[in-house]
């Protein structure tokens, strides 16, 4: 339930971001977080992700949380093995970051955020 709320929230944000991105001619980052139920690891991961995005991509991102317990068929498409997995769908290329995202440095490298912001 928590996840769904967050999805909605992120969707709203996406819409806002879209507008912003149009203005700034910057594209919205599409991020997907795959989780399996509400485990501590997933919650930590979501918290961390949110934090980093707010810090570096404010208004330029959308986060979709996918609960594989509810939609197991979605795991195959993105080749999900580990939980939690963060998938950067856009911009390409697709990047995957697994784990609870507790290592900020590595997440930012993995998402290729640092370079852009600097």
């Amino acid at each position: 339930m928590l996840c769904r709320e967050k999805i909605l929230k992120s969707e709203n944000q996406t819409k806002n971001n879209m507008k912003k991105s149009e203005k700034n001619s910057l594209e919205t980052w599409e991020l997907m977080l795959y989780v399996a139920g509400k485990t501590p690891k997933s919650i930590t991961a979501f918290k961390n992700l949110k934090e980093y995005c707010e810090e570096h991509l404010k208004g330029l991102y959308s986060i979709e949380v996918i609960d594989l317990l509810e939609n197991p068929q979605l795991a195959e498409g993105d080749q999900i093995l580990a939980i939690p997995t963060l998938v950067r769908k856009f911009p390409e290329p697709i990047r995957k970051i697994i784990g609870d995202l507790s290592n900020k440095e590595r997440v930012l490298i993995g998402l290729d955020i640092k370079e852009r912001t600097i």
Partner: peptide, 19 residues
């Protein structure tokens, strides 16, 4: 394609197999 940060498990594999 994969970056590891912090703790994880292979639940995704289980879910896929289970499905």
């Amino acid at each position: 394609e994969i970056e590891e940060t912090g703790e994880y498990d292979l639940e995704g594999l289980f879910i896929r197999l289970g499905h």
